[in-house]
């Protein structure tokens, strides 16, 4: 168990070190998400009540769309360097490779959110930096990373992967986006845990199911 965790961390650390040098994934997510949010501040006249109504939706749509960009990048790097084959030759089980990738992507999306949330709060004038929203954000990032990693690995060899990944990823993660938007709305409206417990359960169920299912299916992706 400890050894597996160490392996997962080693794999994730490899991605993090690469990212530390290039910074393209996190930067892409942050800039794109902020751009989407900024465009919405022009597209919608933001009265305080309207900001509360549409704000959570805008926030999570921006994170989901930007997340796709980052996920795409994380496997494109492997494909361009032909390192995926090298990764497969390592004497590590496929599940651990998957969890390593998920952990890396999870950290990227979470770091990006650390920048996105305060800027969103400033632009929309609604307070999203609360314990509840942080938990929701972590759950959502984990789900995005689990589904996104599996689909990114599937679509990395397609001619037009930039098109393919969002088409696969976005409809599949609709329940998670719904859960994130609804819980954030509840928090923004002054609610607490009890007001969105069902949505929280949905997010947790989504994360658990897709962690397991994607890990099992991932070994079929990396098969030669």
């Amino acid at each position: 168990m400890g050894a597996s965790l160490a392996t997962v961390w080693t794999l994730a650390r490899k991605d993090l070190l690469l990212e530390l040098r290039s910074k393209d994934i996190v930067l892409a997510i942050v800039v794109f998400a902020l751009l989407v949010i900024a465009i919405f501040t022009f597209a919608i006249e933001l009265t305080p009540s309207r900001a509360r109504d549409v704000g959570p939706g805008v926030l999570w749509a921006a994170v989901a769309f930007a997340g796709v960009l980052g996920l795409n990048r994380s496997f494109a790097v492997e494909a361009e360097g032909d390192t995926l084959d090298g990764l497969m030759l390592t004497p590590v089980s496929r599940e651990l490779i998957f969890f390593g990738k998920v952990l890396g992507n999870f950290i990227f999306i979470t770091i990006a959110q650390v920048v996105i949330f305060p800027v969103f709060e400033a632009l929309f004038n609604i307070s999203v930096l609360q314990v509840e929203t942080i938990v929701i954000a972590l759950l959502a990032s984990l789900g995005f990373a689990a589904v996104g990693t599996a689909f990114a690995a599937v679509s990395v060899r397609v001619r037009s992967r930039e098109i393919m990944l969002p088409l696969l990823f976005l409809p599949t993660s609709v329940p998670l986006i719904m859960a994130a938007v609804e819980s954030t709305s509840a928090v923004v409206d002054g609610g607490s845990w009890g007001d969105f417990s069902e949505w929280l359960q949905l997010a947790i169920a989504f994360d658990v199911i897709f962690m397991i299912a994607s890990a099992v299916l991932f070994q079929f992706v990396l098969e030669e």
């Binding site: 599996a150 689909f151 599949t172 299912a213 299916l217 079929f220 992706v221």
Partner: peptide, 11 residues
């Protein structure tokens, strides 16, 4: 065929 089966299953 293999990758399509994975997508079909996830759906």
């Amino acid at each position: 065929r293999r990758l399509a089966a994975i997508i079909g299953l996830i759906g």
